[in-house]
């Protein structure tokens, strides 16, 4: 270890390289290993509320007991698999909706004049200045039975009875799409902005119709941006807890809420940890895919 560190001893470069690794160790690897450890443990009424994995009296070899029951338990009750599948569905639909709404916006920003462009980008980022929780609560005020939207529609005479929007899947999708839209727009914009628009001009010169030019030139060239944006929406949306809890109503079955129930209602930290590990394993392929897109993007821009 000393030899390895010795090589980085001189100059700030070593420090710069080491820092992200230390960060990852402390805030990702160590917590992950702790959660992994708890997931192999057994529930207990004590501090902490699970049994130790190994007991070492200091003389004999430590006795390690690994308990896989928490994992097998997750497959005995259909609830967990259903919740996982539903979370994947919600995340997928949300990413598609974000893409449909975000693509035209990113395209518009990329094609606008530089002065306008920075203003538009600012408008995309501006909502982040307020807490996510506040923005989601604001949607409650908009969507509820005697909320802004219903009152306006009633006043205009378009409806005669308030629409039930809050605590429905519709409200949940509105909340998720609204909150994650910037994560779709920004990578798409970064991608589209680098595009060579002369290609489009060339296509038009050769008699290509705009829609056809978009489909055969712009869209394929922005593929990496589309994938990166979709992953950035999809991955966090799978574990989303706050938005379904506040807007989605009680029957929104999401893995994040199951996790909450395991942790707080059942106080079963081991099963809760097993759910968390399972969710992580499920997301790893998507994260690796995202990484490879990023790497390709970086290679392409060099």
């Amino acid at each position: 270890m000393r030899a390895v560190l010795g090589r980085f001893k001189f100059g700030g470069r070593g420090l710069v390289v080491v820092l992200p690794y230390v960060w990852l160790m402390l805030f990702f690897v160590v917590p992950f290993l702790i959660v992994l450890k708890i997931s192999f443990s057994d529930i207990d009424l004590a501090i902490p509320p699970y049994k130790p994995l190994w007991i070492w009296d200091g003389e004999h070899a430590p006795a390690i007991t690994l308990n896989f029951n928490n994992y097998t338990f997750l497959f005995t009750d259909k609830l967990y698999v259903k919740a996982l599948l539903n979370s994947l569905k919600v995340a997928f639909v949300s990413s598609m909706l974000c893409l449909l709404i975000g693509y035209p916006m990113a395209y518009g920003i990329a094609r606008s004049r530089p002065a306008v462009r920075s203003v538009l980008l600012m408008l995309i980022v501006l909502p982040f200045w307020t807490s996510l929780l506040l923005r989601v609560y604001a949607w409650i005020g908009l969507l509820k039975a005697n909320g802004v939207i219903n009152n306006v529609l009633l006043h205009l005479g378009l409806i005669h009875e308030p629409l039930t929007m809050l605590y429905t899947p519709f409200a949940m999708y509105v909340g998720i799409v609204y909150s994650y839209l910037p994560f779709m727009i920004l990578p798409l914009y970064a991608n589209l902005e680098k595009m060579d628009w002369q290609l489009i001009e060339a296509a038009e010169d050769l008699g290509c119709r705009p829609w056809r030019a978009f489909l055969s030139i712009t869209l394929p060239l922005s593929r990496n941006g589309v994938l990166a944006g979709s992953m950035l929406v999809f991955i966090p949306a799978v574990g989303e807890f706050v938005i379904p809890a506040l807007l989605g109503g009680p029957n929104a079955l999401m893995i994040g809420r199951i996790l909450w129930d395991e942790f707080f209602s059942n106080r079963d930290w081991p099963v809760a940890s097993a759910v968390a590990i399972l969710m992580l394993l499920l997301l790893v392929p998507f994260m690796m895919w995202y990484q490879s897109i990023q790497a390709r993007e970086a290679a392409a821009s060099e």
Partner: peptide
């Protein structure tokens, strides 16, 4: 570098 880091963690 990552390996010894892992061991330390």
């Amino acid at each position: 570098l990552a390996l010894p880091g892992c061991a330390a963690a």
